[in-house]
Simulated assay, not measured.
Amino acid sequence: MTDPTAQEKIAQALRGIWISSRATLEERISVLTQAGQALAAGTLDDSLRQQAESAAHKLAGVLGTFGMPRGSALASQLEQALGNEKSNDRHAEVQQWLVELREEMAAQDRRCA
């Protein structure tokens, strides 16, 4: 048996961090989902908009750290769309980005299993 390489050790550490961070990441997705639903219904208030913008910003950074450029880009798009008070006309895009973001995260879950 050989010792793991530095790259393998880093990959193992990142998998562990992903798994331990998953609940926090899911909370952020939940905030984005609530905001997306409120946006579609025309009831997105400033408080939820700010929470969603913050959640999306944090996800963009974290997902980039985990080597998920597509997930990071989707979170950035959500941040920009939800941070814009005139985003009501983008609710269909927001919903699609949320679906794609969930798919990206599920793929990472499978890689880390």
Rank of each mutant, 00 (worst) to 15 (best):
S47A: 12
C112I: 00
S47H: 13
A41E: 01
E104N: 11
I29A: 04
L48R: 00
I19F: 11
G64L: 01
Q34L: 12
L101D: 10
E93K: 07
R102V: 06
A107F: 06
S20Y: 00
A60K: 15
R111N: 11
V99L: 11
G71L: 08
Q95G: 08
G36N: 09
S76V: 04
R110S: 06
Q80V: 08
C112G: 00
P4F: 02
I10K: 07
K9L: 12
D46W: 13
P4D: 05
R28W: 07
K9N: 06
K58E: 06
T65E: 11
A52H: 00
L25Y: 02
Q77R: 14
K58P: 08
A107C: 06
I19Q: 15
L78K: 02
V94D: 01
S87A: 13
F66Q: 01
A11E: 08
R102A: 08
A106M: 12
S72H: 03
S47Y: 14
L48N: 01
Q34W: 07
R90W: 11
R110Q: 10
D46S: 13
A41F: 01
A38T: 02
A106N: 15
S21Y: 09
A73T: 07
M1K: 01
A11W: 10
I19T: 13
T24R: 14
E85V: 06
A6L: 05
Q108V: 10
M68S: 02
E85I: 09
C112H: 01
T33K: 12
E104F: 10
I29G: 00
M105P: 07
L59N: 02
A56H: 12
L14Y: 10
I29C: 03
D109N: 11
L98E: 13
T65F: 09
M1Y: 01
D3P: 06
T43N: 13
L98R: 15
D89E: 12
T5D: 11
R22C: 03
A35Q: 06
R22V: 03
A73D: 10
L98S: 13
D45I: 00
G16K: 04
G36S: 08
D3T: 07
E85Q: 11
K58A: 14
R102P: 05
C112V: 13
M68D: 04
K9F: 04
W97I: 09
R28T: 07
E79N: 02
A75K: 04
A56G: 14
S47F: 09
R22G: 07
R110K: 06
